[in-house]
Design a protein around this nucleic acid. Structure first.
Lengths: 361, 361
DNA sequence: CGAAACACCGTAAACGTTTACAGATCCTTG
DNA sequence: CAAGGATCTGTAAACGTTTACGGTGTTTCG
């Protein structure tokens, strides 16, 4: 781990100047003889380019940051898994920032862009505050935001459409004949919570169903909380025949509680989750879930960023990724054999990339 | 996004030399008056230190790489989630390398250490080949390997103990009265596959049970493959009363097939998975699973690396993390109420960190 | 009051590259 | 054979920091 060889070491050994070495290493036109000597010296010394010095001169680090609250969250993970290969293919390294649920950390991360250790950044903010907007406007490197940002913010923006997503789910439940469709939401002071609450209301209105406050329960986006919320709901109203859950975890909690209460899913109560995580396919009964296209949003964000890194300045772009309803056993009354079994296996196919090797010993 | 201010800009504005600016910014002893002027100038200009230039001079990037096959794999993800905060707390950024299942990529990543864009690396190799060992010996920065590496390799090493893990599971099944315990393994030319196969054999021997080739089925570490393997197994032998699966996904596939075949779990067949992923708690029935301590291995690896980065040279260390059997409904014959329900909720607690916010709109 | 001690600061070199520019070498051609 | 051009190469500056060293100005003390 001593001092690695530098361009200067090579120059001495090959008996040429450092400029020539650099030219050879960069494939610039050079006499054949010189190329040979330099290559030989580099080879013998086991030379590797110093990325730091290179970056200093070229003002390019070939690194991109991805910042979100927590890698463990399946939605962020899905994005990450798409972002990574896109960046890698373009020759960029990925710097990961897990900011936790702390908004101040997100601001910090944006600020750190000034350190120029990355060429650009993809960020999924928890909330978009005034401070965010200021930092985004002043950012020293291109940023792509996944999530909604007001018109006029000078960054590329990739959005989901949870309104339409909720609509898809509610329509589906309605089409199955359900009329007492409850909403189990997360906190309404979060962006997703608020959006999903509003969308639920809208969807009911469009279908001509009444909005009944009794049918709305607020918990948090976790399994245990979801379970508690559903328990409270069942205590209050007895004729619920469908649960629209703001999240797959909430839906899993719902399944726990329904099972304990002796209700059959989907015969007595149909359940829909949201985000279409791996858990949805793994649960029993498998969970109908609204996919908000996390993976695709990740891919699109990466592409937008690369585009900007390569093309330079242009108008900020906004891309909205459409949601998709993935129907599984928790809503389809009697899954036809064709649908039930292949689903189990089909799901495995979807997951296969996530499971190479399966562990380490 | 123009040219950011540098130390020179500040020096001019404050009417001092760049050396003074640097001293002030680094908190070295300086006259109060100068400190004031420099701070004021830096403030007005919105100066941020250039990390690249800094690294070039200091030979420290404050970045650490984590390299594994695929972030989507729950085992690696669990490691990542522990590694990240440890590094962050110590002031290091995390560079993520997803190498895919390609061994050559791992070698590449090790080679790229010579570029000095990171101060060190944590790696989880798929396989440890001769090429790996050579690169590890010649690595230009400290490396911690998660997985087993031969004696004498000059790197810190964090190991799981899948032998003991399998033993725990088989003992558990045996204690429950099961005697026809089958193994559903992944490919035996992978490290985990081989280790688990051998451990199964050993465990049976210790219990005085015969090793019956009929009871071993090889598939792959995916859900669909696992299902197929179990189907084949059931076709061949009819009296299987327990399945030791080399992986949670295989176990999920097993549940699919058993359910389709009308076998009750755990009454007719008990099922044990391995890795104790989030899926284990989410499935129905919830899955008894052997935890190989991925999270802890990640944390330990990060700590070892930091230690080496800060302390410098010392003998390579080897740490083995003990496995743990997490008992759930897929093996406990009649989960007492106390055990069944809290499990569902307890599981949510375990997962809570992975689900802040639950999605983005 | 002069010298020694001290506090502070600026100059310049260094980290390892890339690259503009000009000098050296070679070949071509009249 | 000389001049011109084409080709290749070396010198040096630059990227933005940190830091060793020596210089200046102030204080302290004999």
């Amino acid at each position: 781990m001593a001092q690695g060889p530098t361009i200067t070491t090579i120059a001495e050994r090959a008996g040429v100047s450092i400029a020539s070495v650099s030219r050879v290493l960069n494939g610039l036109p050079t006499r054949q003889e010189t190329v040979r000597k330099v290559m030989a010296a580099a080879e013998e010394l086991g030379y590797v380019r110093n990325a730091v010095a290179r970056s200093l001169k070229s003002r390019r680090t070939h690194q991109v940051a991805f910042a979100m609250a927590d890698v463990g969250n399946p939605a962020y993970l899905a994005m990450l898994r798409e972002i990574q290969p896109v960046l890698k293919a373009a020759g960029y390294r990925l710097v990961l920032h897990s900011t936790g649920a702390v908004v101040a950390d997100e601001i910090d991360v944006l600020h750190s862009l000034g350190e120029r250790y990355v060429d650009g950044m993809i960020m999924v903010p928890l909330r978009v505050t005034e401070a965010h907007l200021q930092m985004l406007a002043a950012a020293r490197a291109p940023v792509v935001v996944i999530g909604s940002v007001p018109e006029g913010t000078p960054v590329d923006n990739v959005r989901a459409d949870s309104r339409t997503g909720v609509r898809l789910a509610v329509d589906h439940l309605h089409a199955l004949g359900r009329r007492r469709i409850a909403l189990v939401n997360g906190p309404t002071d979060t962006v997703p919570g608020a959006a999903r609450g509003a969308a639920y209301r809208e969807a009911l209105a469009e279908l001509g169903l009444p909005y009944d406050e009794e049918l709305v329960e607020i918990g948090d986006f976790y399994r245990a909380e979801g379970g508690r919320a559903v328990a409270a709901l069942l205590n209050r109203v007895s004729d619920v025949d469908a649960l629209m859950c703001a999240n797959d975890l909430i839906a899993l909690g719902a399944l726990d509680v329904l099972r304990a209460a002796g209700k059959r899913v989907p015969e007595d109560v149909a359940v829909v989750g949201m985000d279409d995580t791996d858990l949805a396919a793994a649960s029993w009964p498998s969970l109908t879930s609204v996919s908000l296209g996390s993976a695709e949003r990740g891919r699109v964000a990466a592409e937008l960023l690369l585009d900007r890194l390569q093309q330079g300045e242009h108008e900020p772009r906004v891309v909205t990724v459409p949601p998709r309803l993935v129907v599984r056993a928790s809503t389809t009354p009697e899954p036809p054999a064709v649908r039930g079994v292949p689903e189990a296996f089909g799901a495995a196919g979807r997951q296969s990339r996530s499971t190479e090797g399966g562990g380490t010993s």
